[in-house]
Design a protein around this nucleic acid. Structure first.
Lengths: 220, 220
DNA sequence: AGCCGCTTGTGAACGCAGGAACAAAGTCGC
DNA sequence: GCGACTTTGTTCCTGCGTTCACAAGCGGCT
């Protein structure tokens, strides 16, 4: 049996598809109706051949000699990514970063919305951010269950992140975005995606230093 | 001529080295003096063999039969990553996210410190965040030059991010961490590292959806 | 002093992602 | 109506990253 669209799309491709989706939305807002692979690749910062290969994972959608229909392609990528309907997320840890995430308008337009904000500090509980009221940690499980949230975002200090992760997974959350600078362990079947801002900076600094002294010795 | 330590360390390895550094610091604070590759790999969430290969890029530093000396390894990784002395960074865009970054204590302990905060809004200019005063955009180039900042962080709205990038690179910044949801174009020799929170969420959502319906058809 | 167990470091194989080149296909101009 | 050009979709190939597996080396015990 031939399955023309294998169920496995490489993770790197998925990340790029999300970028293409963003670029296509921008193009559609600008009134563009069609776009070529070269132009789209340039706007996304990737190789044109790679872009076509990425798009081939979701079936032929372009017209040879013309390019891709902006709206059709956008809708197709959105469907594959599951971004057509908004997903419910809960956010734990309303510090500076958590508050910024809760108030970030970009999520709503990209298929995500928060249904619960939680913090351990009584001073934070009751505050209103981005249209939601911060709840106490005691209400975490009940809210996750009631809203059927499938994604949890952890923006707590490092020392409580694992505990929060355990509670989230215990309540049924299957996907976790972790901003705390610790490596979380989660049960099988739960995806944890770490986002460590310090790591990003350190990689950046290393690349810059490597470029600056490509042949010099690291005095050991 | 043999070069025992080739100058090229894979980027994926560099990112993991930063994680090892974090774990080692935590272990050292806990009083541990030695650690095995298996234990360290478990704490970092990677494969033990891969960890040893990563460490082999910076020369043999372990003792067979015993493991690695926590402090020595930590210092060695810090030296290779260039984290022994703090690097000067400037941050542009003091919205919710920018303010959170400026106030994030984690950077200071990991070898980074901000020497300038900038925002276009007069309402923001003059505010004090994390010990620094927000400056107007007009002072950007002068501050970059005076402080010799090598890293720029962009946390502005998408529509001005490219313009900010141009000004930063024009002033001599060679490394840029971009939180704006656009693909930046920069001159050759400048590293741009995008961090798109929506993309992270979309990848996470896709993985979860793929796991939920591994064999079901995407109704096209 | 010698043996044993444990751990590192490295070599090889596997799988995957990225890039280039080419054939198919559709449109525009004549 | 037909030819030529443009652009997609695919195939091959090269290189990299990851994993497994084993030899080398060191400490501890008898």
């Amino acid at each position: 049996m031939i399955q023309p669209r294998p169920r496995t799309i490489p993770e790197a491709t998925v990340a790029r598809l999300a970028v293409y989706l963003r670029v296509l939305t921008s193009l559609a807002d600008g009134g563009r109706t069609t776009v070529s692979s070269g132009e789209l690749a340039s706007a996304a910062g990737v190789n044109p051949a790679g872009l076509r290969k990425d798009l081939s994972h979701l079936g032929s959608c372009g017209v040879r000699g013309v390019g891709y229909d902006v709206r059709a392609l956008r809708e197709r990528i959105a469907r594959v990514l599951g971004a057509e309907r908004s997903r419910a997320c809960v956010l734990v840890g309303i510090g500076n970063l958590g508050a910024a995430l809760a108030d970030y308008a970009g999520f709503g337009s990209r298929g995500f919305h928060f249904v619960g904000l939680f913090d351990a500090s009584p001073a934070r509980v009751g505050q209103s951010i981005g249209g939601l009221t911060v709840q106490s940690m005691a209400e975490l499980e009940a809210t996750v269950t009631a809203t059927d949230a499938s994604i949890g975002v952890i923006a707590t200090p490092a020392d409580v992140a694992q505990q929060v992760c355990d509670r989230l997974t215990g309540a049924g959350v299957r996907s976790i975005l972790n901003f705390a600078p610790v490596t979380l362990v989660a049960p099988a079947g739960v995806d944890v995606r770490p986002v460590d801002l310090s790591v990003e900076l350190q990689v950046l600094a290393f690349l810059g230093q490597q470029r600056a002294v490509p042949a010099e010795e690291v005095t050991a």
